[in-house]
Simulated scan of single mutants.
Amino acid sequence: MSDQKKVNRRDFIYTASTVVGVVGVGAAAWPLIDQMNPDASVKALATTEVDVSLVQPGQSITVLWRGKPVFIKRRTENEITEAKAVSLTELKHPEKDEDRASNPEWLVMLGVCTHLGCVPLADKGDYNGWFCPCHGSHYDTSGRIRKGPAPTNLEIPKYEFVNSNTIKIG
């Protein structure tokens, strides 16, 4: 009977030692894992709110979000009509204007050329949209690639209208 007690006592010591060891490793690893989370300054850059109350039809503004330019354009009726009239068969990267602008009056997109990351110029090019002078990519009034080496349309970030004068990007 005393042999049976020694075995049980030994099993308990092994189990208790294992549990203490696992808890110790977890306690030592937690700070190392937790430090990989983004700090407060990075979290603050995750979204930005932009007041667009002073932007008139036909005008565009550029804001920074996550270190990248974002073009916000208040389009005129002619620009909206022109963008909607484009046949998808004419486009290198087919996307409807309605899918790119939730509110047709406002177009919000990253101002980074999809060819090599240059910043296109507004109201330039063959399609009265954006033109990247570095390699000659032409974008239309919906930010869709129409001509040049860029493979895809200008990217649309996640955004929402907080109210009629404020757009939240991110």
Score class of each variant (00 low, 15 high):
63 V>I: 15
116 L>T: 12
90 E>G: 06
103 N>F: 11
60 S>L: 10
106 W>A: 05
46 A>Q: 07
65 W>M: 01
9 R>I: 14
50 V>N: 08
93 H>N: 15
41 S>M: 03
115 H>C: 13
29 A>R: 00
15 T>A: 10
117 G>F: 04
27 A>G: 02
116 L>I: 13
35 Q>T: 10
41 S>P: 01
46 A>T: 05
102 S>A: 15
43 K>C: 04
77 E>H: 06
93 H>V: 02
13 I>A: 11
110 L>E: 13
80 I>L: 09
10 R>F: 12
9 R>Q: 11
116 L>A: 15
116 L>G: 13
85 A>N: 14
68 K>W: 06
113 C>Q: 05
51 D>Y: 04
102 S>V: 14
14 Y>V: 14
105 E>V: 14
101 A>V: 09
68 K>P: 00
58 G>D: 02
127 Y>N: 05
26 G>Y: 03
79 E>L: 12
57 P>C: 06
10 R>K: 09
15 T>E: 03
72 I>V: 11
93 H>F: 12
67 G>C: 00
23 V>C: 10
120 P>W: 09
60 S>A: 12
125 G>D: 04
125 G>N: 08
127 Y>P: 01
97 D>K: 08
82 E>V: 12
72 I>K: 04
29 A>M: 14
37 N>R: 06
114 T>P: 05
120 P>T: 11
88 L>C: 02
101 A>W: 04
76 T>H: 03
59 Q>L: 01
127 Y>H: 11
72 I>G: 02
124 K>Q: 15
13 I>T: 10
110 L>I: 15
41 S>H: 03
92 K>E: 12
66 R>L: 14
33 I>Q: 00
73 K>E: 10
61 I>N: 04
81 T>I: 14
40 A>P: 01
9 R>N: 10
49 E>G: 03
111 G>A: 07
19 V>W: 02
80 I>D: 07
71 F>A: 07
107 L>P: 10
69 P>W: 02
52 V>S: 08
123 D>W: 08
8 N>D: 10
122 A>H: 11
98 E>G: 12
13 I>K: 07
115 H>G: 13
110 L>D: 03
28 A>H: 01
84 K>F: 07
62 T>C: 09
56 Q>D: 09
106 W>I: 11
115 H>R: 13
35 Q>N: 05
52 V>A: 08
90 E>Q: 14
45 L>N: 10
10 R>W: 08
121 L>G: 06
37 N>P: 00
59 Q>T: 01
19 V>G: 00
100 R>N: 13
21 G>F: 05
105 E>I: 12
121 L>A: 13
109 M>G: 02
93 H>Y: 11
73 K>S: 13
76 T>K: 02
52 V>F: 05
93 H>L: 01
109 M>C: 14
118 C>Y: 01
103 N>D: 14
124 K>D: 09
33 I>N: 00
40 A>K: 05
62 T>I: 14
86 V>P: 11
89 T>S: 15
76 T>D: 03
89 T>R: 08
16 A>N: 04
41 S>Q: 08
65 W>K: 01
39 D>E: 04
61 I>D: 05
114 T>W: 02
77 E>A: 14
83 A>D: 07
118 C>W: 00
74 R>H: 15
112 V>R: 10
56 Q>P: 03
106 W>D: 02
81 T>K: 15
36 M>T: 11
37 N>Y: 04
